[in-house]
Amino acid sequence: MSATVLHTEVGVSDEKQTAAKSAGRRFGALVVRLGAIAAFAAIMAYFVIFAPGFTSTFNLINVVEQSAILGVLAYGMTAVIIGGGSDVTEGGIDLSIAANMGLCAAVYATLLSMGYGDFLSVLAAIAVGMAVGALNALAVVGLGILPLLATLAVLNVAAGMELTLTQNTVVGASSPLLGVLVSGSFLGVSALAWALIVFSAIMIVLVHGTSFGLRLYAVGGHPEAARAAGISVPFYVSFTYVLSGLCAAVAAILTVSRLSASTPGSGELLLSVLAAALLGTVFSRRFVPTMGGTLLSVLFIGLLANGFQLLNVSSYWVNGVQGALILLVVAITSFARGSEGSR
């Protein structure tokens, strides 16, 4: 509710708009949103009819499980984009998030294999993740380095430290916590799926249900106005980077549980994380990043890969179709924006 109010406030442009114009704008935006959702629905309908076993509970839970890692990372990225604004080169972005996850996973698996317990290992992984986030925050907020650039440098540091720690090898790991995450279930839903559900609920409430989230949008949308209103812009922006680090650590624990090990190459997730966070803007009324939108696009990407698998389509197509869909959705969106005559 409160988030909606903010969108209207932030969205009021300088020139007065006639009722008819704003009604037209609302209508255009509605058409696009419905169009995007209809496209998603059409693809899903195709899978439901033609992909064997697509709708089985087992399969759907499997998709949610597979989406958990991407989802948690995409939440971190979404928070950073909300707090930093969505400008291409100067806006908020965290390129280090996937490498950070790799580093946290390496720390977690290494400590476990050295015989430290779950408690200490989890704590260390979270501390490392948040420390990397804090380093990003220091660079972006404290030193004023462009986020794109600062997080690029931190990406190299985190990826290099992961390689140094693991010597580019697979570090196997097992622990009671991992056992619960792998095989535990509650109400017929597995632990990994629960992790995504609970994490999603926390993020959605934090960003869309509290005054904190409201201020975060203000900071990203209109930093000057937010400053004038007495909001501490540096604090909020720093917070998003540390939160992004925390998300990386949580995703790291999930990925170690899924693979029973920390494996090299987690940096490849970065582009999918970016795609999920950016694609999610289509689901919001004003095309801003939202946690709910990110969740939908993460699930959509997961369902897409899964449906292809069930249809026996080569996995080589998945990236391409994902890319084409991003372009399609964004083209329709920008077309609708352009026809609003807001320029």
Binding site: L271, A275, L278, Y316, W317, V318, N319, G320, G323, A324
Partner: peptide, 9 residues
């Protein structure tokens, strides 16, 4: 970004 994904495929 979209072209990157398509190019990889």
């Amino acid at each position: 970004l979209g072209v990157l994904f398509i190019g990889q495929s």
